[in-house]
């Protein structure tokens, strides 16, 4: 198996803050790696190092067989990068943006123009081709930015949070575009905060938190790591959620989580449909009405929660709480 991306022991520090703390990545040619983590986990730092924008403090990396540190220019000839913010020039038209990038890849004037037209058609931007990018919607800008990354048909593509900030419709569009590219054989490293996105697009997922890899594998492997299924029940009367919890908890394999405002109860179980029937029977006997019930496989949200012990956005608060406990102990 050949690898399009191989990185060993990448370290990057900014003063006291360690953004990357020894990250190893390998991406086989023609596959998609999803780099998943909350804001500030080190995803963008990783991409910046692999795309030659940033030098690591330690570690080595090869992209498309070229050493990132020894021959950054060679790497740049073989990659496309589409960043977190759509890096299109808003005063240039869509065509001018792509034509300029083609020339900077040294494709020559004619080939640059042809390639720009091709990509505008492929990304359904041909109607807007001669309008300044300023007039584009957010989704159109992202598509133009992604088109920019593809001008030189690079074998390795880096997409840093390609759908952050997009509305659901544009996000679905973007996913389709990305799936098309991957079907064409491009190797892709994708960073995302959306677990759903990694689940859908990536062959392999690396979960990163505080600059360290905390888990990796296929989406199914990660879900298996968390184990079992989730019983998801919504009761009719919000006042009786607590009662339902006490009643059902013995059936689960872990603590039940109650969300009062949704009148719902979520609990890991094993045993499948039998548990579901048992739970419904007990609720029925107790006279607790049920609005909705389901048995579902764990999502990557559950995976993240289990692996890091905190939900993505709660990490800082958790740190503060620990500090307060220490203060109190003194």
């Amino acid at each position: 198996m050949t690898y399009a991306i191989q990185a060993r022991d990448l370290v990057k520090r900014y003063g006291d803050v360690t953004a990357l703390d020894g990250v190893d990545l390998t991406v086989p040619t023609g596959t998609v790696l999803g780099l998943l983590g909350p804001n500030g986990a080190g995803k963008t730092t990783c991409v910046r190092i692999l795309t030659t924008l940033l030098r690591p403090d330690a570690g080595t990396a090869e992209v498309a067989g070229v050493d990132v540190l020894a021959d950054p220019r060679g790497v740049r000839q073989r990659i496309g990068l589409s960043g977190q913010y759509a890096a299109v020039d808003e005063y240039l038209t869509g065509f001018e943006n792509l034509d300029m990038i083609g020339r900077l890849y040294h494709l020559g004037a004619r080939r640059s123009r042809e390639r720009a037209r091709e990509l505008l058609r492929q990304f359904r931007l041909d109607d807007a081709a001669d309008r300044p990018a300023k007039t584009y919607s957010g989704g159109m800008r992202r598509r133009l930015d992604l088109a920019g990354a593809l001008v030189a048909s690079p074998p390795v593509l880096f997409l840093d949070e390609p759908t952050t900030g997009l509305d659901p419709r544009s996000r679905t569009d973007m996913w389709e575009v990305i799936q098309g590219l991957v079907a064409g054989g491009t190797t892709l490293l994708l960073t995302t905060q959306y677990l759903e996105e990694a689940d859908l697009l990536a062959d392999e997922i690396v979960v990163i938190d505080h600059g360290r890899i905390i888990a990796q594998g296929t989406a199914d492997q990660l879900k298996a790591q968390v184990g079992g299924e989730r019983l998801d029940i919504t009761v009719a009367d919000p006042a009786r959620v607590g009662e339902a919890k006490r009643l059902l908890e013995p059936l689960g394999v872990g603590p039940a989580v109650v969300e009062e405002h949704r009148r719902s109860l979520l609990m890991p179980v094993s045993g499948g449909a039998a548990v579901l029937i048992n739970a419904l029977r007990q609720l029925d006997v107790a006279g607790i009405g049920v609005d909705d019930v389901g048995l579902r496989r764990p999502t990557l949200d559950d995976v993240f929660l289990t692996l890091t012990g905190h939900a993505a956005e709660e990490s800082e608060n958790a740190g503060e709480a620990v500090e307060q406990v220490r203060e109190g102990a003194r």
Binding site: T51, T52, R76, I79, G83, A87, L104, Y105
Partner: peptide, 17 residues
């Protein structure tokens, strides 16, 4: 600020251009 310099820096162009 807009990330356009990042795009340029990721291209195989002359760094002084």
């Amino acid at each position: 600020k807009k990330g356009i310099i990042d795009r340029f820096r990721s291209l195989p162009m002359s760094p002084s251009a």
